[in-house]
Amino acid sequence: MKKISLTCVECPLGCDITVELDGERVVSVAGNTCPRGEKYAKAEVVCPKRVLTTTVRLENGKMLPVKTNQPIEKSLTFNAMQRVSKVTVASPIKIGDVIVKDLYEGIDLVACANSD
């Protein structure tokens, strides 16, 4: 049995969570204040994922904030940054618009702001 200590990053409270692992199997999760923490801890010990937030350049030279609409595997972070850095988009754009469809299978890059 292995014990792993984690800090939940799902909200600013930052609960200290302990996960008990039997091989790959999660036996128990303790220390979380809410169910989000349990979900986070279970995923974190198997395959850590994060929502990526960054910017892309608009044709008018300004920057547009964007994010992945779901968390991506942490190990893909720099690969994603490289791909996103090549993207340029034209206005008008509405918040929520898809900027890159299927950045990774089923995960899109979406706009976080409007641009007219």
Partner: peptide, 18 residues
């Protein structure tokens, strides 16, 4: 532009601009 805004109020993790 990072996320983590709005969890208390909207129960959803948003970026600052959102």
């Amino acid at each position: 532009i990072h996320n983590g805004f709005g969890l208390t109020r909207f129960k959803e993790s948003m970026t600052g601009p959102e």
